[in-house]
């Protein structure tokens, strides 16, 4: 069936709520309004107000209460409207969610999912546009999912809701309306399995979220120039599928990392460090990072565009390796 990325996410929640009445949904404006992007529309009508609730503006308490609900037997799928707002609950996510089981012992399970909309969206400004996966990669005990298409979003969200470990699920705002044919029958996608979105032989390009789309655009341009890139979407940053990436680098001997967040201490920094530590002998050149400029994302559309990687910037980065 043909669905948007947003519909795929809503469908995943509904399907899992039908299967298990311990799954509950709450967050700011998720009930009658169906969240500000319409992703959770219809869920209140189907499951009722005991299982679908609007919260006050209380990011801290949304995450804290999800821990308490999860350890006592519910499976909360909660929403923090914008990933930017997750920083209000950063303490709860970094110290509590990621460490609770470790600090208190094996009786404690945290089957909770935190969904957030992330990324640039044409003038949303410096506090409503961030991609923050790399901040959470630095934490412990979290699973970090960042899907780039409807198929992956649905299959990964279903796995997240069934997981007994806490999952941060980042949805890219610019992808909500992208359409794709996905199977009618049920499927899930395991964590820690990267997807090769396009096979290639000359350069391995690892891209995340919206940047997968941009990298696939770049691949078309590069193909015309005679450069074949292999586009790898890790899909989950934690756990990270090293093997798929390593296998690709053994073939191409060159790597580029593309992300939408700031360059400094970002996903690219981590992956570049990992590759040079573990794949040094396979590399024929430096690992190049394509990332946002280290400034708060400007409101002005032209400046915003200037900050964020696009197909042309990815093309230049790949070409710099030759």
């Amino acid at each position: 069936m043909l669905v948007t990325y947003g519909q795929a996410i809503g469908d995943a929640i509904k399907e899992e709520m039908r299967k298990d009445d311990n799954v509950i949904l709450y967050g700011e404006d998720v009930a009658q309004m169906g969240n500000i992007f319409g992703i959770t529309k219809g869920i209140l009508e189907e499951f009722g107000s005991d299982r679908v609730k609007n919260t006050p503006i209380v990011e801290t308490a949304i995450i804290g209460s999800a821990i308490g609900a999860a350890v006592t037997g519910l499976r909360p799928c909660v929403e923090l409207m914008y990933a930017d707002f997750s920083l209000v609950a950063f303490n709860e996510l970094f110290h509590c969610v990621g460490k609770w089981r470790y600090m208190h012992g094996p009786e404690f399970k945290l089957p909770l999912v935190v969904r957030s909309a992330m990324g640039s969206s044409f003038g949303a400004g410096a506090e409503h546009s961030n991609c923050l996966e790399s901040l959470y990669m630095h934490a412990t005990g979290l699973t970090i999912v960042s899907p780039s298409c409807a198929y992956d979003a649905k299959g990964l969200l279903k796995t997240a809701i069934r997981s007994d470990d806490p999952v941060l699920f980042f949805e890219h705002k610019q992808l909500y309306q992208t359409k794709e044919n996905i199977p009618d029958e049920e499927y899930t996608i395991p964590f820690g399995v990267a997807d090769i979105k396009r096979e290639g032989t000359d350069v391995t390009v690892i891209a995340v979220g919206l940047m997968v789309k941009k990298t696939l655009e770049a691949a078309e341009i590069l193909a015309k120039k005679g450069i074949s890139i292999e586009v790898i979407d890790p899909r989950t940053l934690v756990p990270f599928d090293k093997e798929t990436v390593f296998e690709s680098v053994r073939k191409t001997h060159r790597a580029v990392v593309v992300e939408e967040s700031n360059k400094t201490a970002g996903i690219g920094a981590e992956l570049a460090a990992m590759l040079q530590e573990e794949m040094y002998d396979e590399l024929d050149g430096p690992i190049v990072r394509v990332a946002a400029l280290d400034v708060p994302l400007p409101y002005n559309i032209a400046l915003e565009k200037y900050c964020i990687p696009d197909a042309n910037k990815i093309v230049s980065a790949v070409e710099s390796l030759f």
Partner: peptide
């Protein structure tokens, strides 16, 4: 947990909502 104890956060107060979540259960 088998005795009902939910745990504790060293950043004081951040665990208050953990108790609230158990109220949902």
């Amino acid at each position: 947990l088998s005795k009902g104890m939910l745990g504790f956060s060293g950043t004081l107060g951040s665990d208050m909502a953990v108790g609230v979540g158990a109220g949902l259960t």
